[in-house]
Write a protein that binds this DNA or RNA. Structure first.
Length: 511
RNA sequence: GCUCGCUUGGUGUAGCCCGGCCAAUCAUAUCGGCCUUUCGAGCCGAUGACAGGGGUUCAAAUCCCCUAGCGAGCACCA
């Protein structure tokens, strides 16, 4: 049974036990259902979701949770998904112009494609329109209190003098804000909530403020009056008819703040779910955009796709499928407590995805050369031990082989060169002994991988822990960049560069 | 300080709303066995958890209270 592929197994099972097959299918579907149901789905015509990244840098692993979970929900409910770049801070969270496409590329790599993509910085006029309507509704006022002063008043639950201003004044001053007549810090537009609400976080929050620094996008470079996230995203969620908001616990109070605006407009607030932060063990580099940015800048990391970086780009270069990341992220569920993602769960998911397709190859690290006396001229190990149809690799043996130092048996002892046969270590050579495979089954002889001394392809394997050099079997020269292979007894790797001549480069994925 | 939230084995998760079928699910991990010309895959088995204390109840992982720990918000950041 083990020699059969999955499809063949299914076929045989269908003949032998159709009931059991149905059970397996049901189990498969259940696997896909690790996420809890979204609340009150039946109340909406369509499940409409959004991912709302801040394009202030490429993505680290933690960012994958958002598209992974939201994308899975879209698939489950046959819903709709928006990608909205919340790029309304040209200064402190200044957008990185390359990040917009990098993020869309990452989402695609994870296996999702948004139904629509928008940038908040293209929609500023819309936010102004709604601000004016809100002023008319008595829901907002302009305020020139210095931030620290207002903060003190707020803490004691006292209104500032501007709170009672009339809508005409508010309109005039807001128009002046839009016209750029104030500098940063001189005036804001506040939402009128409850100034003595028991939760200080909800009291009269800022909806618009002045920013002196021009937005990096040319199309938005002239704006000086920018909405805050809570205002912008609240308006957009309604305008795009979002049914379910899924976001981090840092935004736990956002819904409560935005409800005030929704109430002024008489809109219904979407369903909302929060999740905690994701930590990833196994990396030396902290998983934060700014830390990685700094490490790349000073050369501690060799770019965002350095295998030591906890980034999406890094996993991608290592040949890990986006789907494996999604699987692992979906497995974390949507609980509001902080979670640790074990890389082993990403690896386990990936192994399942790539094991069948990855051809087997030999790669000998830091090999020692041994003259080979006797034996066949060609070795023929299978390309895949479980899929015989795939055929064999024909490896010309030549007069000498390389093996890893740890695999050299003591003098006089034998070892089985995989796909070639048994050899005895004599003085400084390997002597072909020709026994049957029984010697391996008996347990006295270890099976090891090897490469011919001639024609082996020099290869550098980049791993999370550094680089390893060695030689791969000659057939690797015919592989292409992007091929995912399993170096037997070493692990899965993605070929990154296979030049006609000279050193090939591969990235280690996992055992 | 004020407010909100979280706490199930190494990791993650199910169960908690609507108490009993939970001596607690599944995955991953680790260990062992079988199989295998890989330290991969497959098969079998083992390991290991309801934060602590009170209360309600015939019955509590599930409801209530307290304590502890963790996290978040109280930004003219997202």
């Amino acid at each position: 049974m083990n020699a059969l592929g999955t499809a063949e197994k299914r076929e045989r099972l269908a003949d032998l036990a159709p009931d059991r097959l149905a059970e397996l299918d049901a189990a498969d579907e259940a696997d896909d259902r690790t996420l809890p149901e979204l609340p009150n789905v039946e109340d909406y015509d369509e499940v409409r979701l959004r991912v709302a990244p801040n394009p202030n840098g490429p993505w680290h692993l933690g960012h994958a949770r958002m598209p992974a979970v939201i994308g899975r929900y879209r698939e489950r409910y046959g819903g709709w998904m928006l990608c909205r770049f919340d790029d309304t801070d040209p200064e402190t969270k200044r957008p990185d112009l390359d990040a917009y496409d990098a993020i869309l590329g990452a989402i695609e790599y994870l296996g999702f494609s948004p139904d629509e993509v928008v940038k908040a910085s293209d929609r500023v006029e819309t936010y102004y329109d709604h601000a004016r309507t809100l002023i008319d509704a008595g829901g907002a006022y302009t305020c020139s209190c210095p931030a620290e002063e207002f903060s003190l008043l707020k803490t004691e639950g006292t209104a500032c003098p501007h709170r009672e201003e009339d809508p005409e004044t508010a309109h005039a001053e807001f128009d002046a804000m839009v016209a750029g007549e104030y500098d940063a810090g001189e005036r804001v537009l506040r939402v009128r909530t409850d100034i003595d609400h028991k939760n200080p976080a909800l009291r009269d929050w800022v909806a618009f403020r002045m920013v002196d620094t021009p937005h990096p996008r040319e199309a938005a470079a002239e704006y000086r009056c920018w909405p805050m996230l809570d205002f912008q995203s609240g308006i957009d969620d309604h305008l795009f008819d979002v049914s379910h908001i899924v976001r981090g616990i840092d935004l736990q109070d956002s819904a409560k703040r935005q409800r005030y605006v929704y109430d002024y407009f008489d809109w219904a607030y979407p369903e909302v779910l929060h999740w905690g932060h994701v930590q990833v063990e196994a990396y030396d580099v902290a998983m934060s955009t700014s830390t990685i940015k700094a490490a790349v800048a000073v050369g501690d990391l060799n770019g965002w796709d350095d295998p030591r970086a906890p980034t999406i780009a890094s996993l991608r270069r290592r040949g890990i499928r986006g789907e494996a990341i999604v699987e692992a992220m979906a497995g974390l569920g949507t609980s509001t407590s902080n979670v640790d993602l074990a890389m082993s769960s990403v690896y386990a998911a990936n192994r399942e995805l790539v094991d069948d397709e990855a051809d087997r190859r030999f790669f000998v690290r830091d090999g020692v050369e041994k003259t080979l006396l006797g034996g066949p001229e060609t070795a023929e190990p299978p390309l895949h031990p479980d899929l015989e149809d795939r055929g064999v690799r024909e490896i010309p043996v030549g007069g000498a082989v390389r093996v890893e130092p740890d695999d050299v048996p003591p003098n006089g002892k034998r070892v089985w060169l995989k796909g070639l046969g048994p050899v005895r270590h004599t003085r400084n050579a390997f002597e072909f002994t020709g026994e049957d495979i029984e010697v391996v089954r008996d347990g006295d002889v270890d099976v090891v991988h090897w490469v011919p001394a001639d024609d082996a392809v020099p290869l550098r394997l980049r791993t999370m822990d550094g680089e390893e050099t060695g030689h791969a079997e000659p057939g690797v020269a015919a592989c292409a960049a992007d091929d995912v292979v399993q170096f037997e007894r070493v692990g899965f790797a993605r070929l990154d560069r296979v030049p006609d001549d000279g050193e090939a480069v591969a990235y280690f994925a996992h055992p």
